[in-house]
Nucleic acid binder design. Structure first.
Lengths: 342, 342
DNA sequence: TTGAAAGCGCTAACAA
DNA sequence: TTGTTAGCGCTTTCAA
């Protein structure tokens, strides 16, 4: 940026030492090579002159940018801003900045974005875009790029990630519904090629069986995208099958909202006719009509943890990183109620 | 990033030319200096070898990073993700990337973030954090940093910005309420040290007067932060004043949601007892209870325009940039209804 | 403990 | 039209 451009040479000149000496002082790791008295003078001069290392020159030498790339699949999905905030907070504390790209359109744009991020020599990547089998993840792995997955992971469990315990989440929803007397419970899934969609689906069938309820194939509908639109289609399909059910466990809040639309349009009442649970506990879920029972995920914490893992990995690319799984919590509101005994 | 690190020298070596020749070919602006035949060979080699310029070396020479910094005051406020998406889209098309920082806590963190962004030699800045008198904006101006304001502007109208026509927005709300028979209309403002809060307040009093309604000081409450919490406090204060009113024009949807809470807790009905309008038309405003009448802002378009202006400014820092004002639109839902004639 | 010198990869002024 | 050279600002080896 324009303005003050004080170089190391300027600082060194002011103190009357060689630039390399000034460099040694300004780098904490090499500071003890320099006499205390000199170091103090250099430090004072640097401070006074407002010295600030040129990131290009620094990067050219050290191949480090102190920039981390963050890839989100859809920033307007309210789960991502808190995650990003957590990420950025931890990064900033460590002197890193975050480059954010929102792929929005899956597939082609993800590819482009990754290429661009690679070309920028970032120090690492946080990917919120992973699929269960993801060529981009495989590529990062092959190229030994330090990276961490967040929110979703891949089938390869060795990859460092920070995810929510989706099985636990959906189980809490199913048990809650069962506790209200529901036995005919439908599930609208998330995309099965994402770990979240898949884990929630598996968690659903598992917990149903544990309760002695056989999950019925006619009561499960797939959604490829977590959106209101797909939610509307899904519940319409469900209602069209003529199979009775009194509750739906949705893989996501947006899908639940899509269900709200269709129920209202068809004159059905939630929760009187059909109970609905969401997933994510998005902001203002308590303001919906009816307030949505959902699964709260510690999003900020996930972001912080992901950034923490990545920083470790950047420091030592060979480090054994332990993935983290955070625990979600059922938030009961008014979209779920006792099953009608009709 | 690790992996392939093909330098210009490598490409030149393969073709058997001097690195500077290869450089000339790879830079479209200087390509015509090189014979077509040679240029083609260099281009082919670069492509084949997957050459990608080292951004540090490039930046060191050209002082350009092709990175733009974006500062938001609160990314979890749903107006910002669409803006960011618009920004990033236009930037990406021009080969730029976006560094995002969310100040969250106003004041101190904004300062830190700006300092860090400056230290990174970004090519420009998009600030969504501006206050009417903003020392950071003044600083960017003084240091001749290319920057554009988005969403909010400052009192100094010469600064390039992309804002919404807030006066028009609030006027639409007031006229809508008036059309429903409301004459005792309250206003919960946004922070008066932001252009949005101030313009909405001014727009409110202006349009009230134009309708022959004198805005009453007792029916106007200030909010410093656009949050549900402050909205709750504001409407509580309003209700406590004992002055009658049948409608509230809120400066923001979050404030309106805070109002919902208090009304419900006190057993008052919206819109039966009190009509409420929001501002921003946040996602899912149609799903609230009741669906919120609000002012829709073309957020994506604002982001795109802001990025467009900034790119112009980066290309020519002396360019005369014309600020843009986008037009909002009233979206009528069920939080507003005919005034009771009691 | 400090200074000198080389070089990271690139561009641009100057030479040929 | 192409090659040579210098240098952007920094770190790091080597020498003193």
């Amino acid at each position: 940026m324009p303005g003050t451009r004080i170089s190391l040479k300027d600082v060194a000149g002011r103190v009357g030492v060689h630039p390399s000496t000034a460099s040694r002082v300004l780098n904490p790791a090499t500071r003890q090579m320099v006499s205390e008295e000199l170091a103090a003078r250099v430090l004072a001069a640097a401070e006074e002159m407002g010295y600030c290392p040129n990131p290009f020159a620094l990067g050219l030498r050290t191949r480090r940018s102190f920039i981390v790339g963050v890839l989100t699949p859809d920033l307007t999905n309210p789960v991502f801003p808190p995650m990003f905030r957590g990420i950025e907070k931890v990064l900033a504390e460590a002197g890193f900045s975050a480059m954010l790209a929102d792929s929005h359109i899956p597939g082609v744009r993800e590819r482009t974005i990754l290429d661009k991020m690679k070309s920028r020599w970032l120090d690492g990547l946080i990917l919120a875009t992973a699929h269960r089998k993801d060529p981009l993840v495989a590529e990062c792995l092959a190229e030994k790029i330090p990276f961490v997955l967040i929110n979703r992971t891949t089938d390869d469990e060795s990859i460092p990630c920070v995810v929510n315990d989706d099985r636990s989440g959906i189980r809490q929803a199913v048990e809650h519904l069962y506790g209200l007397g529901h036995t005919k419970i439908a599930h609208i899934t998330g995309a099965q090629n994402t770990s979240t969609g898949y884990a929630r689906f598996e968690g659903f069938t598992e917990s149903m069986r544990e309760l002695g309820l056989e999950p019925e194939i006619d009561l499960i509908v797939n959604c490829e995208t977590l959106s209101e639109t797909e939610g509307r289609q899904a519940i319409s399909s469900l209602l069209g099958r003529g199979k009775q059910f009194t509750a739906i466990a949705c893989a996501n809040d947006l899908i639940a909202l899509g269900c709200y639309d269709v129920l209202r349009k068809r004159g059905l009442k939630c929760p009187d006719d059909i109970s609905i649970t969401g997933f994510n506990d998005m902001p203002f879920a308590d303001k919906f009509d009816p307030p949505l029972t959902s699964i709260r995920i510690p999003l900020l914490e996930m972001g912080e943890k992901a950034a923490g893992l990545l920083l470790k990995l950047i420091e030592d690319p060979e480090a054994r990183i332990k993935s983290e799984k955070v625990t979600p919590q059922l938030i009961i509101r008014q979209s779920t109620a006792k099953a009608r005994t009709s």
